[in-house]
Design a protein around this nucleic acid. Structure first.
Lengths: 219, 219
DNA sequence: ATTTAATGTTAACATTTGTTACGTAATGGT
DNA sequence: ACCATTACGTAACAAATGTTAACATTAAAT
């Protein structure tokens, strides 16, 4: 049992209430905005912020188990940008805890404490890597790099390659890689398909040649 | 006295040895590579990694006081990329502590513990903001955004605007913003100069119109 | 003082990416 | 079944950025 799984079972034992949202619904912070912490118990969500230009910048796909609100608290700059959490799987379930109670739980339990301590460290590693990926590559390299980062959480091996078991639209990719419109994404993806590096199977991305995909990333 | 300053005085009291390096020298991890932690006591350093393509990706300017090695430990991916620390001021001084000893100190002291706990959180905020900046902007917006991030640590008000009291070459900017050559940076900087937004005074960047500079950033 | 290396400047051209417009196909709600 | 919505595909053109090269200027090394 991982530390994260331990957190879930801990919250369950404490009879913390859960809420469930359907695909493409948003976890709104109505009422409980400032006072509640959310822990993703099941499903996948996409976190993003809306920039003042109206464009959406996607931060990460989070797969259960994960602590949603820790990230949220840190990302919202001042003035806090609207932080979106959209359900990407058929449904997603969250534990909803009063912030004060959540931290009381954490501080009373050594294992949870160490988990949270590690949380920021891991997110920092991910973030710096992403930053490097997006900064040092052109848009095409950024897309290739982004796709490879999905493998760990969502990739499943098949005879034809690695299938990313997640619905990712061109618009989503644009939001992650800072590409202005889905048209440019389409051009890049089509290129990769033509080269036999990628394919689309049942609306899912199939990485047919990971080696050549990573070759297109600067680092 | 900030927590960071407290850490410095703490290390001084413990008679932890320091090392001093001159401008544009590198803090090499010779011998003490795995076992030592470094704390920047005075000066400014630039942290960067060299990508397999040979290009340099600049991560941050760190101003004393700061803990160098925490960042280093996390950035080096596997296989660990060479993590460079270059002195940017006339000289820089570091405390050099055995890693085991360093953590013993931290864990024995509540204030230091809270400082380190906060360290990752702050770095994560910075990193996600940087990521957003570099991803959602074109190169020109990235440069504008990068320059504004320098204001907090290095900006001093003058009658003509905000002077960035730090030597930043076009090549440096390229490394931070993922611009391939200093030529493209020059084009962008020259543009900003022509518009009266920037100026160069004694080899330093002078931000003459912050408002118009930020206007050029997507968010 | 002289030489060497680092940095800035400019320009021409190639490549990538953005922008806009229009069309098709699939999906979901009523 | 119908309509509205969402997503994908394609293309022409504009704008930004990369690439390369040549040369000027400044800082560092000897």
């Amino acid at each position: 049992m991982t530390d994260a799984e331990y957190l879930l079972s801990f919250l369950q034992e404490k009879k913390v209430p859960t809420i469930t949202k359907k695909r493409h619904k948003y976890l709104a912070y109505q009422g409980c905005e400032q006072t509640c912490t959310y822990v993703l118990a099941e499903g996948v969500v996409k976190t993003s912020v809306i920039l003042r230009t109206g464009r959406e910048f996607n931060i990460a796909y989070l797969k259960a188990p994960d602590i949603i609100s820790l990230l949220r608290d840190e990302v919202s700059h001042n003035p806090p940008a609207p932080f979106n959490i959209r359900v990407e799987t058929q449904s997603a379930t969250f534990y909803q805890v009063e912030r004060v109670v959540f931290w009381k739980y954490i501080n009373q339990n050594a294992r949870l404490q160490s988990y949270v301590k590690d949380y920021y460290r891991r997110k920092l590693i991910e973030s710096i890597y992403q930053q490097q990926l997006m900064t040092t590559n052109g848009k095409r390299g950024a897309v290739c790099g982004f796709l490879t980062t999905l493998i760990d959480n969502f990739g499943t091996d098949t005879p034809d390659g690695i299938l990313l078991n997640l619905s990712v639209t061109n618009e989503d990719i644009a939001g992650f890689c800072g590409i202005s419109t889905r048209n440019s994404v389409n051009r890049i993806m089509h290129d990769l398909k033509d080269q036999g590096i990628l394919d689309i199977r049942h609306k899912r991305i199939l990485i047919r040649d990971l080696s050549r995909l990573t070759d297109l990333i600067g680092e």
